[in-house]
């Protein structure tokens, strides 16, 4: 706990909360641009947003999570504090504390985004009844993939002091993930940073002739969620080992 509170103290005047708020803001801003506006379309407002969110997440979250991981670890790089901290606390506690703070940030990102989604619906006078289970599934699956991305970013920050590398990888993952959105869905299974897509709970039936679509519920991909959680756990272990073995 002490280590966690130390991390909170280190976050003072770092304005991390602006980054935490900025990430869902990017997603919601983009979503609002394409959100249904007319009367008929408002009957499928939430479905259309839940359908498009995975694609938006695929672009925004790799960069956003890389930025969050970088905020947490860069403080130690800039201040050259590793050589001090490793004499004051066990390395695992440093890693644990930063991961815990990261978990708080991720939860806030997802919570703000879901709250924003509901807010947008209320303001738009949506007529579609909200399916809480779909919303909850979207929140949980987003959190799981965000955790995977954040832990990958943390691992890169620990292994390499170059923040350029972390952000560059984040951008490359965004680009690849976006491409995966327009490939056959099987392709997305091989792109972990785009797992937002196979975990989606809303599908779209598009009729090319009438140029209309109808949304339908997809079954919850629980094995996929478990795989995501397992990969996140693997990255957690790799990160922990990287901290233990790091030469200072």
């Amino acid at each position: 706990m002490t280590a966690f509170f130390c991390e909170l103290k280190k976050a003072r005047r770092r304005w991390d909360w602006l980054v935490v708020a900025g990430i869902p803001l990017c997603v919601l801003l983009w979503a609002s641009g394409g959100a249904p506006a007319s009367g008929d379309e408002r009957a499928s407002y939430y479905s259309s947003l839940l359908y498009v969110l995975p694609v938006l997440h695929t672009v925004v979250m790799p960069v956003g999570m890389a930025a969050l991981a970088s905020r947490l670890w860069d403080a130690e790089t800039k201040g050259c504090t590793a050589k001090l901290l490793y004499t004051l606390q066990i390395r695992a506690s440093l890693y644990g504390a930063k991961t815990a703070l990261g978990a708080v940030y991720l939860t806030a990102v997802v919570a703000l985004e879901m709250a924003g989604l509901l807010g947008m619906g209320r303001l738009s006078g949506v007529t579609e009844p909200l399916d809480i289970s779909r919303l909850a599934w979207t929140a949980v699956s987003t959190l799981a993939v965000d955790a995977l991305l954040f832990l990958a970013g943390s691992l890169l920050c620990i292994r390499f002091r170059q923040t350029l590398l972390v952000m560059g990888v984040g951008l490359a993952c965004s680009l690849c993930g976006l491409f995966a959105a327009y490939m056959p869905v099987q392709f997305a299974y091989f792109v972990p940073f785009a797992y937002f897509l196979p975990l989606s709970c809303v599908g779209l039936d598009w009729n090319f002739e009438t140029r209309t679509g109808s949304y339908y519920a997809l079954p919850f991909q629980v094995p996929m969620l478990a795989l995501t959680a397992a990969l996140a756990a693997l990255l957690l272990v790799l990160g922990w080992r990287a901290v233990q073995n790091k030469e200072v």
């Binding site: 602006l18 980054v19 900025g22 990430i23 803001l25 990017c26 801003l29 983009w30 672009v59 925004v60 960069v63 956003g64 890389a66 930025a67 970088s70 905020r71 860069d74 923040t163 350029l164 972390v166 952000m167 951008l171 965004s174």
Partner: peptide
């Protein structure tokens, strides 16, 4: 004086 934040801003502004 953060490396990551201006890049995130660029992404957000690009989306806008």
């Amino acid at each position: 004086r953060s490396f990551a934040v201006p890049i995130l801003i660029a992404l957000g502004c690009g989306l806008a």
